[in-house]
Amino acid sequence: MTHDEVTGAVRPLTLAWVNRHLEVGEQVVGVEELHGGITAEMRRLTIGTRDGGTRHLVLRTFVDPYFVEHAEDLLHREADALAVLADTDVPAPAPVAVDPGAAHCEYPSLLMTHLPGRTVLADEGLEARVPLLARHLVAIHALRPADRPQEYQAWTTADAVVPPHGADAVAWAAATDVIRKPAPRYEGRFLHRDFHPGNVLFDEPSHDAAALRITGVVDWVQTSWGPADLDVAHCSTNLAMLHGPAWGLRFAEAYEEAGGVLAATAGERLYWRLLDALAFASDVEPVARPWREAGRVELTTRAVEERLDAYVNSLLEALG
Rank of each mutant, 00 (worst) to 15 (best):
T2A: 02
D4R: 14
R11E: 15
P12Y: 05
N19T: 12
R20E: 12
L22C: 10
E23C: 06
E23T: 10
V24N: 07
L45C: 07
L45H: 01
L45Q: 01
T46K: 12
T49R: 15
D51L: 10
D64P: 00
Y66M: 07
E69C: 11
R77E: 02
A79Y: 04
D89C: 09
V90T: 09
V90I: 11
V98Q: 02
P100V: 05
E106R: 10
E106K: 01
L110I: 04
L110V: 03
H114A: 13
H114R: 14
L115Q: 06
P116F: 02
A122D: 15
E127M: 08
E127W: 10
L137R: 00
L137N: 00
V138G: 04
I140F: 09
I140A: 06
R148T: 15
W155A: 09
T157K: 15
T176V: 08
P184S: 11
L191M: 03
H192K: 01
D194A: 11
F195H: 06
P197V: 01
L201Q: 07
V217C: 01
V218R: 00
Q222T: 14
W225L: 10
P227C: 02
D229N: 14
D231N: 05
A233T: 06
T237F: 12
A240N: 09
A246T: 11
G248A: 15
R250Q: 13
E256C: 04
A264Q: 10
L274Y: 04
L274I: 07
D276F: 04
V287Q: 05
V287Y: 05
W291M: 13
A294D: 12
R296E: 09
V297M: 10
T301A: 11
A303Y: 08
R307G: 00
Y311L: 10
N313R: 09
S314G: 07
L315W: 01
